[in-house]
Each structure stands twice: as C-alpha cells, then as structure tokens.
Amino acid sequence: MKKVLINYTSNQKQGYIAGGLFNEADVKQRLYEGEQLKNTDIEFYNPIEAPCNDKSKLPTADDIFTMDTEKILKSDVIVADISTKDEGVMAELGIAWACNYIHQLAEEGYTLEDILKYIPKKEIKAHLSDIRKTTSNQYENNYIPWGFNQYVIGMIENNDGKIYDSFNKVIEDISNNK
C-alpha cells in the first residue's frame, strides 16, 4: 500500500474534477470540464488525464486511490458530477466532507487531541459477495461481468480495511478478534 502524501504545497489554488470515467460520454464530459476550468485562476487536476487512470497500463486500485486522494486532499475546490451516482465520486465527496468537518471542529476550538479522542479511528470491514467474481477471468470483451470501482476498493484497503466475500465472513472475523 502506498502512503497518501500531503507534504507539498502550491501558491496557486488547487481543484479536483470528480466524475464518472467509465464510458465515452463520461470521458468527453470530463475532458470538456477540464478545458472549461482552465479559464479560471484555479489549477485543476483532472483524473481522466492522469497516468494513474490510464487503463492501458493496468493501474492497481492502490495506484488510483493514492494519486487521486492526494489531489483531493490538496484541493481547495471540488467540482463533482453526481448525476451518474458513481460510487467513486461519492467516496471522493466523503473524503472532502471529512476534511471540512475536521476544519470545522478546529475552528470551534477543538484540539487535535480532542478530535482524536472523540472521533475514533475506524476499522473497516466491507463485504463484496458477487457471484460473478469467481469466473470473471474466463470471459472476454463485452462478456466480462461488470467490476467494482477501483477508487473505492483502494480507499478501503488504504485504511487497512478488509474486503470479505460475504457478510458471514465479516461476522466470523469480528467474532474471532474479540
């Protein structure tokens, strides 16, 4: 797992373009948004143009999550297309919300010690019980069963979360780790 880096700064305001990237219409819209946003005083990161999202290079979930999250964390502005209900966009917005909430608590006078005390670190246990997983490698072209958003998978794994094949496996793990 790569570590998400936040130890760099820029004098220019930073932005992030969040939106689905899974079909031709999504790609054209993201490229259009990127072109239009170049006319602002904000330097926008557009995931569709990032090397970590070049599918011909077979990026891992960790590659995608790490690079995109670094850019989300450093952004002052998030422009999000929520019309397609893309789960990666929803995860990106969740990260932005958590950042803003931490800022809100600090502005209210909470110390880092308070925040860490009252908001515990989360143990993430997700389950992904899809019968298509076991045979998906036997299909080709348009017959490959649909997959899962790699940004979300990367986010779960980056937080030392685990993804189980069923809810029963989650219960089993929780029961064994009492």
Rank of each mutant, 00 (worst) to 15 (best):
V4G: 09
V4Y: 08
Q14H: 08
Y16L: 11
Y16Q: 09
Y16P: 14
I17D: 06
G20E: 09
L21R: 00
F22Y: 02
E24V: 05
K28L: 08
K28V: 04
R30K: 04
L31C: 04
Y32N: 03
E33N: 10
G34C: 09
G34N: 14
Q36E: 00
L37R: 11
K38G: 05
N39C: 02
D41G: 07
D41E: 12
E43A: 10
E43R: 09
N46R: 03
P47I: 02
D54Y: 01
S56P: 05
P59C: 05
I64R: 01
F65I: 01
F65D: 03
M67C: 09
M67R: 08
T69K: 05
E70I: 13
E70V: 13
K71E: 14
I72T: 13
I72S: 09
S75N: 11
D76Y: 11
D76G: 11
V77L: 13
A80N: 12
A80K: 09
D81A: 01
D86H: 02
D86P: 00
D86F: 03
E87H: 10
G88S: 06
E92A: 12
G94D: 06
G94Q: 05
I95E: 07
A96K: 13
A98I: 10
C99W: 07
C99R: 15
Y101L: 14
H103N: 15
E108G: 08
G109V: 02
G109F: 13
G109Q: 10
T111C: 10
D114Y: 11
D114M: 06
K117P: 04
K117C: 07
P120Y: 12
P120K: 06
K121Y: 13
E123N: 13
I124K: 02
K125L: 07
A126G: 03
H127P: 06
L128R: 13
L128E: 05
D130I: 09
R132E: 02
K133F: 15
N137F: 11
N142Y: 14
N142L: 13
Y143F: 02
Y143E: 03
Y143R: 00
I144Y: 05
G147R: 06
Q150C: 02
Q150E: 07
Y151N: 00
V152G: 00
M155G: 08
N159A: 06
D165P: 15
D165R: 15
D165A: 15
K169N: 03
K169M: 03
K169E: 02
I171Y: 01
D173E: 11
N176P: 01
N176R: 14
K178L: 12
